[in-house]
Design a protein around this nucleic acid. Sequence first.
DNA 1: ATAATAAATCAAATACAATCAATATAACTT
DNA 2: AAGTTATATTGATTGTATTTGATTTATTAT
Lengths: 248, 248
Amino acid sequence: MNFQKRKRFILDELNKQGEVDVKKLAADLSISEITIRRDLNNLADNGLLFRTHGGASKTDPLAVPYTYTNKSVQNIAAKDDICREAAKLINDGDIIFMDCGSTVFRLCQFIANKRIKVVTNSLPIITALQNSLVSLNIIGGEYDAKRQAMHGLIANRHLSFYKAKQAFIGVDGISVNGLFANTELEAGITTAFINNSEKTILLCDDSKIGKESYLKFAPLTQINTLITNSTSADLVLYEEQGIEIIKV
Amino acid sequence: MNFQKRKRFILDELNKQGEVDVKKLAADLSISEITIRRDLNNLADNGLLFRTHGGASKTDPLAVPYTYTNKSVQNIAAKDDICREAAKLINDGDIIFMDCGSTVFRLCQFIANKRIKVVTNSLPIITALQNSLVSLNIIGGEYDAKRQAMHGLIANRHLSFYKAKQAFIGVDGISVNGLFANTELEAGITTAFINNSEKTILLCDDSKIGKESYLKFAPLTQINTLITNSTSADLVLYEEQGIEIIKV
DNA sequence: ATAATAAATCAAATACAATCAATATAACTT
DNA sequence: AAGTTATATTGATTGTATTTGATTTATTAT
């Protein structure tokens, strides 16, 4: 009973049962558990199964199709704290922009009962707010399945039809040198948000503070307010550039 | 009963009931409450549910994914037959419009593996096709939660940026006198679809044939092709006005 | 204020990874 | 062909990490 045969047996078993157990496989194949574990890890590395404690299953049962689960599971608590504070800045009758980051998304829960208009390029935000009191406006354009949002020339142009009181945005990084994005598309729509709103409010958990990623697309002076859970000493430098800092 | 299985059970239960209870889960799964609590907290950290005192409830984003399931979708079989035929008119490389009716929605399943570009104002269509080979473009504008689609001035203007080979549309009624809609908004976007495509293909099950509802917004001559399961004698009258009829 | 729920801490069981040894397999030399 | 060396596979051992539950203490809801 070699490697290849065991693999086939394991995958067959997985197909039949939906899951396998290290102990049982070891007994069935008369081989040590450590070897089974090695096989399972190998198969998992190749994406052929999902490793669990004590065995394996066909796919990750937590892999739900329509959420931010894969992406933004980081720092949910901090993000919620930030967004709770952000929601206090919003009053009935306001028109606000919300961009498509995972931080801004957490704002939805705090504004569902406000009588406001939200303009956004993010589909998860639409889904989250579609049965709320919020009136929604979607920015059209090329759909990016990975970000579940619209970007690009047409989106930017569409956005220019609107004027909002506040833009709530996220970035991939912020430092004394400015705001950073991972892609041009993101930078483009964020810039459009900034240019078409009276006030720009940046929502940023501590993992983004001081981080300079791929593309610097705007100076700090474009931002009016930064809400963050960071305790970084650099924040005073931001303040010196005229940004109001709200710490949570 | 491991970790993953419990989580799947919890999420399933949550989907069915809308909320779950620590005690009940512990009893159902024959496991201690502390473990259930840990599971719930873990899922909450991943944004998959909202933790409450004594249990958990659904998070908003998962609450209402876009579908037509809740709606009364009549005549599914007939609509599928129509759409199967419609899909034959679409070739790789085409750019097509799809409007937001329940009939046109059924077309998704037949085009998921085509390398085409779809421009649409319907969110259920986006959801259905977002992980397909199809490249998507969303028409922005005011969001209508009831229709789960965008309509209005901005949507119509946005649409005018594009030119498609074919527009696949539905209507609320069709007779020898023309095409009928229930609202001005629908009429507006449908007209825009027609005006910006080389060919307009109307998908219509028998319940719409001969029906004259609220608003007549276009003459029959605007349509190039009608695909229907109807056996009405009136169809020859449509044909006399220059419409190609495909019966299924 | 009181009861229910949650968090914190500790303990036990189980699974895992790392390391090293034994064996089998392959490759190479003469 | 035989022997030697290198390599890959497997297993045993041991320490580590994870999972789960019991008990106690803190928090929350009504």
